[in-house]
Design a protein around this nucleic acid. Structure first.
Lengths: 189, 189
DNA sequence: ACCTGAACACCGTTCAAGT
DNA sequence: ACCTGAACACCGTTCAAGT
């Protein structure tokens, strides 16, 4: 079930190219104006007609999901690598900071990630599920070492990470770092 | 500097009445659709022309500020009453819960409050300043009793309260209550 | 002093017509 | 199979004309 190409063989070359142009323009627009940026503006920036944008990405969430999958793979890989080495709570904290900083790149992304965790119909659900898997692992490890309150769930951590991103969208970076630490401190037993 | 009536004497009776109609319609619309609700829809709901809405409230923030000042005074009074009795950290926690629950009434309000604390030009600045005064008092008392980390500022608490509201906009009430507790736990030393 | 509503600029989304 | 762009419905905001 690829996004472009339908049921038939390889997608046409011009379609692939347009898809990339749209993603690049969306990346620029979301960085500057957040995920609420005008889709007509994105299409203009990509040099394609608005219908072409909609053909590749039926809505805003699909656009964000495409960006996460194809341009932000490093975040997920970072999460996979965090399991070893460090004390477990430190690894969990590093993951929370990484997600918070990342989601804050596009203003509004944290809200999309928040609402997509439990919504299997959302185009962002896959990204959320992958994030949740990492969160689960790191939380379980920290809990096993008794470093975290026993009533903390992975859903709580998901909410707190995204809340950290949301705060980061609106306060100076140093304060945001400090707030990250207060959030992690709240998980301690 | 009243919002309606300009520099002259009492505002006309029809103006006062229209202002109330707009506020009531905005309250309904914001409750249902958040602070991003269509202002044309609000005007329609109030039975006035769109120009009348703009005359009384030049923008969305002015509308939210009007609602807070004239229909949500109870929140601020509650904050004033929290200083006595209880242990200081408990009072601060109660205040954070009250603000979070309140700001979550209108989806999007927490973001407006967040950006208005340091923006003196914002119509919501007065409301934020009053909230900040209460936060300051309660935080100072809790800090004086050594119940709170010494690096926690009133700005931090403001951010955390509004983040709690933001989370509450998107998770079930029980989880939101739990998240409130984790946030407060993070303030403990 | 206040209200009305047309006017302008813009956007999201769909879909018939093309290649 | 894919692209284009007109079409429709809607909104934010301003302002000339009224009372």
């Amino acid at each position: 079930m690829t996004e472009t190409g339908g049921r038939a063989g390889r997608p046409r070359a011009d379609a692939l190219r347009n898809r990339e142009l749209v993603l690049a323009a969306a990346d620029r627009a979301f960085l500057e104006q957040g995920t609420g940026a005008s889709l007509e503006g994105v299409a203009r920036g990509a040099g394609v007609a608005i219908g072409t944008l909609y053909r590749h990405f039926p809505n805003r969430r699909a656009l964000a999901a495409g960006l996460l999958r194809e341009r932000h793979a490093a975040l997920f890989e970072y999460g996979d690598d965090l399991a070893d080495g460090k004390p477990a709570l430190e690894a969990l904290a590093a993951w929370m900071r990484a997600v918070a900083a990342h989601a804050a790149l596009y203003r509004g992304l944290a809200a999309l990630l928040m609402e997509s965790l439990d919504d299997e119909a959302s185009e962002l659900h896959e990204a959320c599920a992958r994030m949740a898997a990492t969160t689960n692992n790191l939380l379980a490890a920290a809990a096993a070492q008794g470093e975290v309150r026993t009533d903390v769930t992975a859903a709580d951590v998901h909410a707190l990470m995204n809340a950290a991103a949301w705060m980061r969208e609106q306060v100076p970076a140093e304060q945001a770092d400090h707030l990250d630490e207060l959030l992690v401190n709240g998980l301690r037993r």
